[in-house]
Computed example of a mutant assay.
Amino acid sequence: MMLLPAIVLVVIFSYVPMAGIVMAFQKYVPNKGLFGSPFIGWRNFRLLMDYPDIGRIFFNTIYIAVMKIVAGLFVPITIAILLNELRREWVKRTFQTLVYLPHFMSWVLLSGILVDVLSPTSGVVNQLLGYFGAKPIFFLGSNDWFPYAMVISDVWKEFGFGTIVYLAALTGINPSLYEAAEIDGAGRLKQTFHVTLPGMMPIIVLMLTLNIGNVLNAGFEQIFNLYSPPVYESADIIDTFVYRMGVQQAQFGFATAVGLLKSIVSFLFISFSYFLAYRLANYRIF
């Protein structure tokens, strides 16, 4: 009985909409519906393979997603280790709360803040660069800078949540290991490399393998709120491409085919990541 509401919600919002997959094999006409639109077989998928920019779109998606995964792993681990070294508990808790706050903000709100902060004329970042004699950089309008701006802003928003996960892992390390290392002459840095990191390794491996399933999710909400036509070359990802094709250009069948292909590849990555999590970190869903 406790599970029933959740099961009903999953069926309504996750399984019932899967009937729309049939549009990937149709020339979908809204007024004819799913059962009245003509079937065209694999034509939408052939159009997808022949689309001139599809290779670039897949590359952008994987490139941005991989950078987010790597940076989103390195930064929280580093911050968690540094916080663990703080001896004043109130300082640790205050900093932990401050870095965790952006996690609760939506990208709609944060995008407005980032547009102002990264503005080439009045933005704080470019004003700071100007003090050092650097020329203004149009972070959100340059194909060279846009992907890195997305990665850095995403890490800034989410690293507080990851820090909590790794701080929890640090509490599971036996303090006697640090005492033994100190007796053997190890300083704080050597203790970090020989005690702290090995003790965190199971959760690090687990988080890394689970993130493999997100390699085709580069962050639709973030990029959609921050990109513009001048940076489509480096910013256009699968999800934004599906949005433009399906919603803006009303090519429903073609957009569904793209989304279906992405879902199939993502399913394979997720299955592989859970297999690795089981083999490397003994993590099981059931």
Rank of each mutant, 00 (worst) to 15 (best):
N214R: 05
V8Q: 04
T97W: 14
G130T: 11
G199L: 05
M49C: 12
Y283R: 01
F275T: 07
I237R: 00
Q26R: 03
G55Q: 15
G185P: 06
S228K: 12
A180V: 09
I77T: 01
V205N: 03
S14A: 02
L261F: 14
M67Y: 09
N44Q: 11
F35V: 05
A168F: 11
E182I: 00
G246S: 12
H103P: 13
Y148P: 02
V108C: 12
R284F: 05
I54P: 02
G123V: 03
L261Y: 05
F241H: 08
I77G: 00
V117F: 15
V231T: 08
I21E: 00
M150V: 12
N214F: 05
F58H: 10
G72F: 02
A134R: 06
I57H: 02
L216F: 12
Y232F: 15
R46T: 09
V195W: 01
E233P: 10
I62V: 15
Y243N: 12
T121M: 15
G55S: 15
V70K: 01
M18R: 02
Q191A: 06
V195Q: 00
P120K: 07
A281L: 02
T163N: 08
L86S: 10
M245K: 03
W156L: 13
N282I: 01
S273Q: 03
D236K: 15
R56C: 07
P102T: 10
P30L: 04
Q96W: 06
S273I: 04
L177V: 01
G36R: 01
I79S: 04
I21T: 05
A235G: 12
P202Q: 09
W107I: 14
K68G: 11
Y283A: 11
R56K: 15
G72R: 04
F59M: 13
L34M: 11
T171P: 03
I81S: 00
Q249I: 12
G185T: 00
L34R: 08
S273F: 01
P38K: 08
V124N: 09
G123R: 00
W107R: 13
D184L: 04
P202K: 01
W156T: 00
L170V: 08
L197D: 11
A134V: 13
F132V: 15
A168Y: 13
Y28A: 01
L82E: 08
F35W: 08
S119I: 07
P5C: 07
V247S: 11
W156M: 03
I164L: 13
R284G: 04
A6V: 09
A255E: 00
A257I: 08
M201G: 07
M105W: 14
A19S: 03
W156A: 11
G41Y: 12
F252T: 02
F220V: 09
N211G: 10
P76L: 07
V115P: 01
M207T: 12
M150E: 00
P102G: 11
R87I: 09
A180Q: 08
N174Q: 07
V29M: 08
V11Q: 07
I113M: 15
G33H: 10
N217C: 02
V125H: 05
I81M: 12
